[in-house]
């Protein structure tokens, strides 16, 4: 029981105080569970992180579920799931209720407006790095898939789900590394 509580508490606190999404919380989880508690081996944590990134959905939630599963099976996975989801659920509930009454306030509007420009800058910075890294790989198929996906969503407003399905299949057919002599170039 004490162990479950410790598991819940650590994922709850990690989730409540980690700003900046999955790429920030996963290293912190590693620090907590590998270095401090010594519950998981370093290499296994790396593999679990890879699985968390390969699964759809929020990486932080996936990583937490996997750590919970590894440590205490399905009950463990449920505990870490609740621990990770509860903080944003509570915080956004409060903000959401306040939002309705603050939306028409001029100062709040002005701050949100300014912040939106800042958020746009942050996202475009991310976009720049992602595209740069993609182009650096010099894989024609990857670049074609990127262009196809961008044009179909941005110009033709095709539902992103179809693009995900199509690219997953193309990736499996064209980019999967078969017995070491991959067809990619």
């Amino acid at each position: 029981m004490k162990f479950y509580w410790k598991l819940f508490k650590s994922t709850f606190l990690l989730s409540a105080f980690t700003f900046g999404g999955g790429f920030v919380i996963v290293p912190l989880m590693r620090k907590q569970f590998v270095e401090q508690y010594r519950w998981i081996e370093e290499k296994e944590m790396l593999d679990l992180t890879a699985i968390a990134q390969s699964s759809p959905g929020a990486i932080a939630v996936n990583a937490a579920v996997l750590v919970g599963y590894k440590l205490a099976g399905i009950p463990g996975a449920l505990i870490t799931l609740f621990g990770t989801v509860l903080p944003p659920l509570l915080i956004l509930s409060i903000i959401s209720i306040a939002y309705a009454s603050f939306r028409d306030n001029h100062v709040v509007q002005a701050v949100l407006r300014g912040m939106q420009a800042g958020v746009a800058a942050v996202i475009m910075d991310v976009v720049y790095v992602l595209i740069r890294d993609l182009v650096k790989e010099k894989k024609t198929i990857s670049i074609l898939l990127f262009l196809l996906s961008f044009v179909s969503v941005f110009m033709f407003h095709i539902n992103a789900i179809y693009i995900i399905l199509f690219s997953g299949i193309m990736g499996y057919l064209l980019l999967a590394d078969r017995k070491g002599d991959g067809v990619e170039k």
Partner: peptide, 16 residues
């Protein structure tokens, strides 16, 4: 394999 196809597509989605 599937992920290597998804990654460039996801970059396209994020760009959009």
């Amino acid at each position: 394999g599937i992920m290597s196809g998804l990654r460039p597509a996801v970059v396209g989605l994020i760009t959009s």
